[in-house]
Structures are given as C-alpha cells and as structure tokens.
Design a protein around this nucleic acid. Sequence first.
DNA 1: GGAGTATTTGATAATGATTATCAATAGCAC
DNA 2: GTGCTATTGATAATCATTATCAAATACTCC
Lengths: 148, 148
Amino acid sequence: MDAKQKFEQFVASEGLRRTGQRTKVLDVFLATERHVTVQELHDLVRKKHKGIGYATVARTVKLICESGLCRQVDFGDGALRYEHKYDHEHHDHLICVECGKFEEIYSPKLEKLQHELVRKYDYVQKSHKLDIFGLCPECAKKNAQKTT
Amino acid sequence: MDAKQKFEQFVASEGLRRTGQRTKVLDVFLATERHVTVQELHDLVRKKHKGIGYATVARTVKLICESGLCRQVDFGDGALRYEHKYDHEHHDHLICVECGKFEEIYSPKLEKLQHELVRKYDYVQKSHKLDIFGLCPECAKKNAQKTT
DNA sequence: GGAGTATTTGATAATGATTATCAATAGCAC
DNA sequence: GTGCTATTGATAATCATTATCAAATACTCC
C-alpha cells in the first residue's frame, strides 16, 4: 500500500479529519531523505506552502509517527529528529561524534540476536534503537595526525 | 582503582580544581543505583547538602561523564538521565513503553557483532546505545486481556 | 601561613525545543 | 447548506539545559 493511503487510512480509523495541511506536510516529509527536526521540516514546508504554522507541522509529524510511517531518532544534539520509513528498511545508525556524519547500517544477525534477548526476558518487542557513536574514517585520521 | 580516585585523577589531569561540591555530588551519585535526571540528582544532593545549586550538579555530572564514570541515557521522556558505571558492566536497556519499567541487559555476542559492523565501515567505535522498546511481561498480559 | 590569580559556585537569566491555549477556520455528517 | 466539532496558526507556557557574572574558594608561589 502507498504511504499516503496508509496515512489517510490511519487518520480515518482514529476518527480524525483529512486536511490540506496534513497532506502537504506528509508530502514534503516523504520527499525528504534526511533526518529532519521539526524546525527543519517546518522550513521545508514553508518553501512550498506559506501559511502552515510550526505547531501544525509538529503535530502532524507526531501523527505520522503514530501511523507507523515515521520514527523518532535522537542523535543527542538536543533536538528530536524524524525519518520516514517509506521505501526504507529498518536500520540503525553509526554516528561520528566529531563531524556529525552518520551511516545507516543494518545487520540481520544483530536483529536476530536482539529478538532472542527480548524473548529471554519475556518481553514483547515493539521497536528498538541502536546508535553507535565513534569516529568516521576521516575524523579518525585527523585525530591520529594530531596526536603525532 | 576506586571510582573517587579515578574522578580525582581526571580532575587533576584536566587542570581542574578539587572542590567540596564535586566530591559531594559524586558521592551521592555513586550511592544512587538509578537512572537519574539532573533534577532528581539535585534533589538527592540537597537532602544531604543544602547549599549546592542546580547548575553545579548539572556541571558536575557532565564532568563525571567526561571522566568515564558515567553515561547518559535517554528513554525518550524529554529529560536526559545519567547512570554511573561504578560496579556495573556495560549494558543495554529493555524498556517497557507502557509502564516505564526497564531491564538492564547484556550480551557479549551482541557486542561482538557491533564491533564487526563498525569495523566494516572503517569507524572507530567510542560507545553505543541500544534501547529496545516493548512490553514487559505484566503489561503484555494486561494488553492481551484488553483485546479479548 | 598569606597574597595573588584563576577556577568554581550559586542564583538567575537566556536559550531552544516541545507542548498548551484559544479564537477563528474548515471538515464532515446530516 | 447547517450545525457540530476537529483543526489550525499565532502565541504563550513549560521544561530542560546552558550561559552569565559577582562572590567565594582552591591552588601556586613565596
């Protein structure tokens, strides 16, 4: 099913209303292949649609999360970021603590191990978040030179 | 080496000063086997030592992190939490999204896999954070009853 | 031990992100 | 179209973290 359809279905099933603002925010969000803050998304939305307010963007991106099309990520820089899941596999993040660059990583083995762990504790897994912090090759090189 | 010694050594090595406030905050923090916010830690500290301000607690807990004796955790509830590493192995978290309860989990296999992944991307690993969200056995049971 | 200097402290203000408020607007069911 | 209620947008409130700055204090050198 199409992402927009899925969202509209969710909105309907919750007894909420279909509005132009929600559609527009979703469109811009799906077209953005980045991990945006609400602030950034608001800026992007306003480039195309002047009148849409910050609060509406914030509320809508939360809704999109609830619909399952988006997830929050937190790189520890003080602002929540959002990434949509449309056309994306689940993945984790490898984040450079020096320059902020990151890689999206995925390992089936890792996923499997996690599920085993969760089962061991009798939990029912909903989601997870694995962030690995380190130095990217470039920054690692720079750091090595500095200490020389 | 003792945790307090390690901290004092760190403070000295950074050219910082050894103060009564830092020692007191560290003591209270090490005696707390919980994941505290700065607010909570400040409250705990004030029970024993009236005059210590919020800013000092916030600054000190950051210092403790830098010294390697503490790490930030973020359960997504809007406030950063801190847990000390004294007498604790590294571990990840399994967090119940219903009741907020959590387990500390650890798996050497998982750690090993991560290191392999990081190496694949030529990164130098500094730390990582794995949070798995789900339902604890109790909440899973309650939810199952609701749907019946 | 005492003076000089730079760090630290504590109260408070500033900042920044998120959430709440509320009158005006606009979907939706009839 | 009408009536009801959710939604919107501007703004204020909230909350955690960070910055500010004068006063207090730790450390160095004598």
